[in-house]
Amino acid sequence: MSIAMATEAPGAFQGTLTDKLKEQFDAGLLSGQELRPDFTIAQPVHRYTSIDHAIWRKLYERQAEMLRGRVSDEFLQGLATLGMEKDRVPDFDQLNETLMRATGWQVVAVPGLVPDEVFFEHLANRRFPASWWMRKPEQLDYLQEPDCFHDVFGHVPLLINPVFADYMEAYGKGGLKAAGLGALDMLSRLYWYTVEFGLIRTEQGLRIYGAGIVSSQGESIYSLDSASPNRIGFDVRRIMRTRYRIDTFQKTYFVIDSFEQLFDATRPDFAPLYEELRAQPTLGAGDVAPGDQVLNVGTREGWADTEDI
């Protein structure tokens, strides 16, 4: 994940690279590890404790049960194909044997947040940067920066899907362009509302595919069952104008019809789109705008009045 995306969206982190690396070093995330030029490290499998494995097992069991009838079939197929370990933190090398054969992707270990350009470069070359460390027992339900469970359980299963795998590669290539065009704020919103907090429409009803929801017990329920948030049909221009939440459940979820729709939306050159959108006002995370394909308007119950990002 990018250093500018403390909650996995480019542009969210407000510190400096030196500050973040010092924070990671002080937390022991770099201790004894060689930090390579691409900000990856060898996954320190020997450093996982019995507590780390117990937390993985508890989270895996809880989410696997919670996601029945809630998550997309593509996610479940990816999880089954990977054969991801349930009782202990997975070995990235073992996951990569299956992942590489399926779509040419691989998981690379990082100590935490990495610079934007590094993150995009990894995605553009079919490498997914995943934090190696596990959250603490008191962080089972919430932590600000993504840990190994969020990154691996939440993100990796969909990388088995060829269309979604292509979308992630395209996003990485788009990110490298956006960084040079000063448009990371707009592109980050696309990542946030799709890769992290996306919903998909199926014949059985709405289903989850975004990793931020998949790895969260509370949001797995809220995103589908609560009357509070808006649910709006996917539109790339609309999403790129829409701010989001990093401290609460989302006020709005955008719904795709298929992963093909998502991938096709990334085919055009976004440079003219960025210019077009710069002339338009941004929208609040909970706004409903003219022209929206509204599935339902939220009741707004429980919405926090803190600032959107």
Rank of each mutant, 00 (worst) to 15 (best):
S2C: 14
T7K: 13
A9S: 15
G11S: 04
F13G: 15
Q14T: 12
S31F: 05
G32K: 01
T40F: 04
I41E: 11
I41G: 10
A42K: 14
H46K: 14
Y48L: 05
T49A: 02
H53Y: 02
R57C: 12
L59A: 13
E65Y: 00
M66W: 00
R70F: 00
V71K: 08
E74K: 03
E74M: 01
E74N: 07
E74W: 00
F75G: 03
Q77F: 00
Q77Y: 00
L79C: 03
L82D: 08
M84I: 13
E85I: 00
E85N: 14
K86L: 07
R88S: 05
V89Q: 04
F92C: 06
D93R: 05
L95Y: 02
N96K: 02
R101L: 03
R101C: 04
T103H: 03
V107T: 11
A109I: 12
P111V: 01
G112C: 08
V114H: 03
D116M: 10
E117V: 13
L123S: 08
A124N: 07
A124C: 12
R126A: 05
R126G: 07
P129T: 02
A130Q: 01
S131Q: 05
W132L: 02
M134A: 04
L140P: 05
L143S: 13
L143E: 05
E145Q: 12
P146F: 02
F149L: 11
G154W: 02
L159I: 01
N161P: 11
P162C: 01
V163K: 09
M168S: 11
E169H: 11
A170L: 14
G172N: 03
K173N: 11
G175M: 09
G175Q: 12
K177V: 14
A179C: 07
D185G: 01
M186K: 02
L187I: 02
W192S: 06
T194P: 06
T194Q: 03
I200L: 11
R201N: 14
Q204P: 06
R207N: 05
Y209H: 04
I213C: 02
A227F: 09
A227W: 08
S228V: 00
N230V: 10
R237V: 13
R237G: 14
Y244E: 12
Q250N: 04
T252W: 03
V255K: 15
I256W: 07
S258H: 11
F259C: 09
A271I: 08
L273D: 10
P281F: 00
P281G: 08
P281Q: 06
P281D: 12
T282Y: 08
G291R: 13
V294N: 10
L295E: 07
W303Y: 13
A304P: 06
D305I: 03
